[in-house]
Simulated assay, not measured.
Amino acid sequence: MTVSTYSIKDLEQLSGIKAHTLRIWEQRYSLLSPKRTDTNIRYYDDNDLKLILNVALLNENGYKISKIASMSPDEVREEVVKLTERTLTHDDQIHALTISMIELDEERFDKVISTNILKIGFEQTMLSIIYPFLSKIGVLWQTGSINPAQEHFISNLVRQKLIVAIDGQVTKSGGKKFLLYLPEGELHEISLLFAAYIIKLKGHKVIYLGQSTPRSDLHMVYDVHQPDFLVTIITTAPSADQVEEYIKDISSKFSSTQLIISGIQVLGHDFRFPENVRVLNYIRDIKAYIEEIESFAHSNN
């Protein structure tokens, strides 16, 4: 497995501790042991990142840095585990998830998520903890600072949690039909799964096609189910110069259906879409959109 390396700016972004403070801690307490490349550029490894995440968490919860510096790595970790088991501040939980990602610790990840689901529910755990966590490390994934194995590890665990949560929902009779899919080449599935969870939570029917759906498959399933809504998210595919044409083509092919779209390839552009296209700034806004649909339906009854 490729070893991950981090700059001091990476440590700052992941831990929330300013680079200037990290350097002081390094010099005064020897908390970090930076390595150097052949060209004498300083870098840090996974052990440094895990340590500084633990140190940051303890420090934010009232532990003096001098006290932390006198503890062994095992003692630091034990204190962090105790702390994250009794505290439920969102930042603390995000810290704990980040550590479990770096350590590839499925048991720790599962415990953090399960505890939060029991306390605040699945939806709020997604919105207040998992989404901010994914956003926090997303930039580092893109720049290669975080190992792809760590990305896949976390994404698959979140995906598993979503699938279990979706399976636990019951569709109401008389609910609307939503067909959810990702365009060909699009693999970023977590937000689509969360949309499926919210739709089922509200009692509506979900037909889920998932990642990289060929248009022929989309047409076939559409013809069978005749859904009221199509839902898709465009993060990487189709590309920015093709997305407007793609959406217009889909909206015309399924002109009697409302198309709900989101994703970074769609947002922030001056696209002009047909009337049957609704753009959501965040896919989590789908809950408010469904409530809007339901309110409109009730007012017309």
Rank of each mutant, 00 (worst) to 15 (best):
T235D: 08
I199G: 12
G185M: 09
L127M: 13
Q124H: 12
S212C: 01
G138A: 12
S145F: 05
S128N: 11
R272D: 15
G268T: 09
M71G: 05
S239M: 09
H95T: 08
D45Y: 01
P183E: 12
I146W: 03
L11V: 13
I120K: 08
K136V: 02
H95G: 01
R36K: 04
D74V: 14
Q258W: 09
V266L: 13
G203V: 06
L49M: 06
Q258Y: 06
D10E: 10
L187Q: 11
S70Y: 00
K111D: 08
S15P: 09
I233R: 15
W25A: 02
E107P: 04
G144M: 01
F273E: 04
P238Q: 06
I166N: 10
T2L: 11
L32V: 00
D110E: 11
G174I: 12
R278I: 15
L97I: 03
Q265N: 15
S252A: 12
L104N: 11
I166W: 02
G263L: 03
I24A: 10
V266Q: 12
H225N: 13
P227M: 08
I234F: 07
V80F: 05
T89F: 00
P183S: 11
I94A: 00
Y181T: 03
A149C: 05
Y43R: 06
V277E: 09
Q142H: 07
S7L: 06
S33A: 11
S70V: 03
S155L: 03
Y131N: 08
L97W: 03
H20S: 11
P148G: 01
T257V: 11
E78N: 14
I250E: 00
E275L: 12
A149S: 13
E26V: 00
R159M: 07
G263S: 10
S72Q: 04
E292G: 15
S173C: 13
E184R: 13
L31T: 07
N116I: 01
H225V: 10
N116H: 09
Y29D: 07
A56K: 07
L134Q: 08
T171K: 11
D217R: 01
E275F: 08
R28D: 05
K177W: 05
F178T: 12
Y282R: 13
E60Y: 03
Y131F: 12
I113M: 07
L280T: 15
D105W: 09
H225T: 10
G210M: 04
T213M: 07
H225D: 04
L22I: 07
R23A: 04
S295A: 14
K176F: 13
I234G: 08
H298I: 15
A69M: 04
L49S: 06
P214M: 00
G203K: 02
I117L: 00
W25H: 03
L11C: 12
S216T: 09
W141V: 09
P214E: 01
V112I: 12
I41R: 12
W141H: 04
E292F: 15
I199N: 09
V3R: 13
H219Y: 09
E292W: 11
I113N: 05
K202N: 11
